[in-house]
Design a protein around this nucleic acid. Structure first.
Length: 809
DNA sequence: CGCCAGATTACG
DNA sequence: GTAATCTGGCGA
C-alpha cells in the first residue's frame, strides 16, 4: 500500500480550499514530512503547481485515481506543526483560503514561480513560427498572455497538437553563498607537504599551518585571508596542490540595520525599575515561570518606562531557555526601539520589517527558524515568526490599527498573539498609553490583567497643551492653516534655535462637510455618524444605513453659509509656511517624500542633526520619535479625523493627540503643544488636552454602548464588488435576505450601502455591516454565503468578509 | 449540422 | 487559477 499525503495546492479559490490526496512515490517515502513544499500535478493537462503537505497517511474518502507527487521542494519542513495548525485556524476565522494563510506566514521567497512555456512539437506554418515564436521552438506564455489574438492562435495550434503547454515550477528560495576554504588533507598529510616545501616558500608554509588549524571546518575565504594574513593567490596555489578545496558556504544577507552600535554601557544593562515597573515585571515573570498563557494589559503614560518592562521580561524568558517575540507598529520600527533591544540582547535578535529585501527577509527568517535568533522584533507579520518555545509575546502600542491586515487574510496581530500565547503556554503583554477600548474593557472585566504605570520615570510633567479655536481665526484673517498663536510660537522657536514639529492629520481627506462658524459636522439622522460627500451624485450619504440627502448650502445648526468640505495637503501647508516664515528650514514628511527606500530614516536623521527647524508631516511623525531639541509640537487640524464616518473616529483622535503631546520636551528643555481645531469642545480633544484617558474611556464606552458598537458588540463587514453596479447591489440584497433569515433577531444588520469610494478600479462596491453579541449560526451562514457567491463563478462578483474591520470606509 | 463563444464544472 | 466540457445560438 503506497503512502498517501494530503496536499493544499496553490490554487486560491473557494472550491480548491481543501486538502487533496496524493500518492507518495517510494523514492520520497522516507524524506517527506508534514510542512514541506511539494510539486504536484493538478488538473487535466500537464499543469504542475506548488503545494504544502498538511497531513500524511490520513484516510481519504476519495475513491478516484490518485496522482503521485512529482517532487519535494524542501529537505526540511518550511512550516512547523504549530504554525500549520495556526494557518488552518486563521483561514477559518478570517474567511481566507488556507493556502493564502500559509503564504502570509512565510517569506515571499518560498512562493514558487510557475511559468508556462509553449513548445512547438510539430511543424507549424512559417508565419506563426516567425511572428509568435521568433524562430525559436519555445515561448514564455506570460509574454503573449495579454494579446487575445495570439492566445487564440496558440489554442488552435494546441488542438491540432502542433504545440504543447509545459509548466515549470521554479523555486526562488536561494540562499546566498560565498567562497569557502576547506582542507582536503588530514593533519599528517599537511605536515608532510610542509616538510617537502622549498625553504623560501614562506607563504605556502603559513597556509599549511593555517589549514592544520581548521581541519574538518569550512571557513569563508575572506575570513581565512584576514586571520592568516595570506593573499588570495596563495589559496589558489593550495587548490592546485590539492591541499584545500573551494566550496560554497551559505551567508546571511544581513540587513543594513546590523551596523555596529555605539557601546553604551548604560543601555546594555537592565535599568533600575521604579515600584510600579517592578510590580509589572514581577507579575509577568511569574507567568513566564509558571508557563501561564495570561494576557496582561500594560497601561502606562508616555515616558513611564514600558520598554524597560518589556526588555526585562524578555530577559526572563531567555533565562528560562525560551524565546521572545516583540511587535511594534511598522512606523515606529525605526532605529530607536530596535537598537535598544539589540543593545540588550545582541546577536540573538532578528528584526523583521517592511524595509527588508526579499532576500534579507528570507535570511532573517531562516536564522529564526534554525534557532539562531531567540528574540524577534518586527511589525505585524512578524507575529508568525517561526520561534520555538515562546516564553513571552509583546505587542507595543497595542491600540494601533496597523496591527490589523486590511487584505485577506484579514487578521489582527493581537488575536494571533493570544492564539500563540495559548499554544506555547506563554503570557502576552499588550502595552499602550491609550489602550484600545476593546482591550481596556476586557481588562476591566478581568479577562486581561491590568498593570498600571502611572508615573513618568523622570518625574517630569507632560508638556502643557493649548487648544486653539480656529473659528474666530478664520473669520478675522481668512483661510489659513496657522493661527496667530502657533505662528508666534514657531517664530519664537526659530529665534531660540529650537525645533518644532507640525502634524497634519491626513485622515479624512476632504470628504465631509463642516461648518466653519460653529464646527457642526453633518451627520446621519439614523446612525449618528458623519455623512460622506459623494461628488458623483452630489449628495451626502451615510455609509452605514444608506441614508442620503442633498449637499447643504447652509449649516443646519446655525444657518451660516460658511459650510465647506474639509481637507488640505502637506504640500499646500509647506507653501503657506514658506510664505509666512520665509527663513525657516522645513523638512516635509509624507507618502510622497518618503516613498523611496531609506528616505524615512534619512529625513529623520537630518532633522535630528538640526538641519531643519520644522518637521512637517502626517501621522507618521507622531510615533516613537525622540528629538531632545524639539520644544514645540503643533497639530494643525485636530478634528479632521472626527469627521470620518467611523465609530472609532473619536478614539483615534484621542490616541493621536495623546501620542503627539508626548513628543515635546522629552529632554531637559520644557516643551509645549498647540492643538488647532474647529471643535474645541469635543470631548476627545478636551480630554486629550487634560491627558485624561480614564475619563475618555468612560465617556466613549457610554457612547459605544448606546449605539451598539464594540466593545459591546462585535462587527463584521461584508463587501461585494462588480463592474456593473446593479449586479453588486443585487448580490448584496440577496445576501442581506439570507442573513435576515438565518441570524438571530438580536443581531443587527446594516445596509447594504455603497462604499465611500463606491467605484474603485472600475468596480462598484457595496457593503453590509453586521453587529452581534453572539450568534451560533453566523459563522456557518457566512461560510455558506461565500460558497454560494464564489463557487459558481457567479458572473464575476467578488465577495469578501472582514471579521473585525478597523475602518468602515 | 457543426462551429463558436460563453458558462460551467472539476481539479486527488 | 486553468482547462476541459457543456450549452445554446447562429450561420452554412
Amino acid at each position: 500500500m503506497a503512502q498517501l499525503a494530503q496536499i493544499i495546492v496553490d490554487v486560491p479559490t473557494m472550491q480548491t480550499n481543501q486538502p487533496y490526496t496524493y500518492q507518495v512515490p517510494p523514492r520520497l517515502e522516507n524524506q517527506i514530512q508534514k510542512g514541506m513544499r511539494v510539486i504536484v500535478p493538478f488538473g487535466n493537462g500537464k499543469r504542475q503547481v506548488q503545494g504544502f503537505v498538511v497531513g500524511l497517511d490520513q484516510p481519504t474518502k476519495y475513491d478516484g485515481q490518485l496522482k503521485a507527487i512529482s517532487a519535494l521542494m524542501d529537505l526540511q519542513p518550511v512550516i512547523n506543526d504549530e504554525l500549520l495548525k495556526l494557518s488552518k485556524w486563521l483561514a477559518d476565522h478570517t474567511y481566507a483560503f488556507w493556502v493564502s494563510s500559509i503564504y502570509t506566514m512565510l517569506p515571499n521567497m518560498l512562493k514558487a514561480k510557475t511559468t508556462r512555456i509553449v513548445r512547438i512539437i510539430d511543424e507549424v506554418d512559417e508565419q506563426t513560427a516567425f511572428d509568435i515564436f521568433h524562430g525559436k521552438d519555445e515561448l514564455d506564455f506570460a509574454t503573449v498572455q495579454s494579446d487575445p489574438q495570439i492566445v487564440s492562435r496558440l489554442l488552435k495550434l494546441q488542438k491540432q497538437k502542433k504545440v504543447r503547454f509545459e509548466y515549470v515550477v521554479a523555486d526562488k528560495a536561494k540562499p546566498k553563498t560565498t567562497v569557502g576554504i576547506r582542507p582536503q588533507l588530514d593533519f599528517e598529510e599537511l605536515e608532510e607537504a610542509r616538510t617537502s616545501l622549498h625553504s623560501n616558500a614562506h607563504a605556502q608554509e603559513r597556509l599549511l599551518s593555517y589549514l592544520q588549524s581548521i581541519i574538518g571546518k569550512t571557513v569563508k575565504q575572506t575570513d581565512a585571508e584576514r586571520v592568516s594574513g595570506l593573499k588570495a593567490a596563495t589559496f589558489n596555489v593550495g587548490v592546485q596542490k590539492g591541499w584545500l578545496a573551494k566550496v560554497p558556504v551559505e551567508v546571511y544577507r544581513t540587513p543594513h540595520t546590523q551596523e555596529k552600535l555605539p557601546n553604551d554601557e548604560h543601555l546594555s544593562k537592565p535599568l533600575e525599575l521604579n515600584d510600579e515597573q517592578q510590580v509589572a515585571v514581577n507579575k509577568i515573570d511569574q507567568a513566564i515561570d509558571d508557563s501561564q498563557s495570561k494576557v496582561f494589559l500594560l497601561e502606562g503614560v508616555t515616558g513611564s518606562g514600558k520598554t524597560e518592562v518589556y526588555l526585562q521580561s524578555i530577559a526572563r524568558a531567555l533565562k528560562n531557555h525560551k524565546t521572545a517575540l516583540m511587535l511594534v507598529p511598522e512606523i515606529s520600527l525605526t532605529t530607536q526601539i530596535v537598537n535598544r533591544v539589540r543593545r540588550r540582547f545582541g546577536s540573538k535578535v532578528a528584526v523583521l520589517h517592511s524595509g527588508l529585501s526579499n532576500g534579507e527577509r528570507f535570511d532573517e527568517w531562516r536564522r529564526i527558524e534554525r534557532g539562531e535568533a531567540k528574540v524577534v522584533v518586527g511589525a505585524r507579520s512578524a507575529i508568525f515568526a517561526p520561534l520555538k518555545d515562546l516564553g513571552i509575546i509583546i505587542l507595543d502600542e497595542e491600540h494601533e490599527s496597523s496591527y490589523k491586515q486590511d487584505e485577506s487574510p484579514r487578521y489582527h496581530a493581537r488575536e494571533i498573539a493570544k492564539w500563540r500565547g495559548k499554544s506555547n503556554s506563554a503570557p502576552v503583554v499588550l502595552g499602550s498609553a491609550t489602550p484600545s477600548l476593546e482591550s481596556r474593557a476586557r481588562a476591566m472585566k478581568g479577562v486581561y490583567q491590568l498593570l498600571l504605570l502611572k508615573h513618568r520615570i523622570n518625574k517630569r510633567p507632560l508638556p502643557p497643551i493649548q487648544v486653539v479655536d480656529m473659528r474666530p481665526e478664520i473669520k478675522e484673517r481668512g483661510e489659513s492653516n496657522f493661527s496667530r498663536e502657533l505662528l508666534a510660537k514657531l517664530t519664537d522657536r526659530l529665534v531660540r534655535n529650537e525645533q518644532s514639529m507640525l502634524l497634519l492629520n491626513r485622515r479624512g481627506f476632504s470628504s465631509f462637510m463642516m461648518c466653519r462658524d460653529c464646527g457642526e459636522v453633518l451627520k446621519c439622522p439614523n446612525c449618528d455618524i458623519s455623512l460622506t460627500l459623494h461628488l458623483d451624485s452630489h449628495t451626502m450619504k451615510c455609509h452605514y444605513c444608506g441614508h442620503e440627502e442633498p449637499i447643504p448650502r447652509y449649516c443646519p445648526n446655525c444657518g451660516s453659509r460658511e459650510i465647506r468640505y474639509y481637507g488640505t495637503g502637506t504640500e499646500k501647508v509647506e507653501q503657506e509656511l514658506n510664505r509666512l516664515i520665509p527663513n525657516a528650514r522645513i523638512i516635509r514628511m509624507d507618502v510622497d517624500t518618503t516613498r523611496r527606500k531609506g528616505m524615512h530614516e534619512k529625513l529623520l536623521r537630518q532633522f535630528g542633526q538640526h538641519q531643519a527647524d520644522i518637521l512637517l508631516g502626517t501621522q507618521m511623525i507622531a510615533k516613537g520619535l525622540d528629538f531632545p531639541n524639539v520644544t514645540l509640537v503643533g497639530v494643525l487640524n485636530a478634528d479632521t479625523g472626527l469627521g470620518l464616518p467611523d465609530f472609532r473616529s473619536s478614539e483615534r483622535t484621542f490616541d493621536l493627540l495623546s501620542q503627539v503631546s508626548g513628543r515635546a520636551g522629552r529632554a531637559d528643555k520644557k516643551g509645549e503643544v498647540i492643538i488647532q481645531t474647529y471643535n474645541p469642545d469635543h470631548y476627545a480633544i478636551r480630554l486629550a488636552q487634560k491627558n485624561n484617558y480614564e475619563a475618555f474611556f468612560k465617556q466613549e464606552m457610554a457612547l459605544r454602548r448606546q449605539a451598539s458598537y464594540p466593545p459591546y458588540y462585535f462587527t463584521i463587514r461584508i463587501m461585494a464588488s462588480h463592474e456593473d453596479e446593479s449586479v453588486a447591489a443585487r448580490t448584496m440584497t440577496k445576501i442581506k435576505q439570507e442573513l435576515v433569515e438565518n441570524l438571530m433577531p438580536s443581531t443587527i444588520i446594516l445596509g447594504p450601502t455603497p462604499r465611500a469610494i463606491a467605484r474603485m478600479k472600475r468596480r462598484y462596491y457595496y457593503q453590509i455591516v453586521i453587529k452581534y453579541k453572539q450568534d451560533q449560526r453566523l459563522h456557518s451562514t457566512l461560510q455558506r454565503i461565500l460558497q454560494e457567491t464564489q463557487s459558481k463563478g457567479r458572473a464575476d462578483v467578488q465577495v469578501s468578509i472582514d471579521p473585525d474591520p478597523q475602518y468602515f470606509m
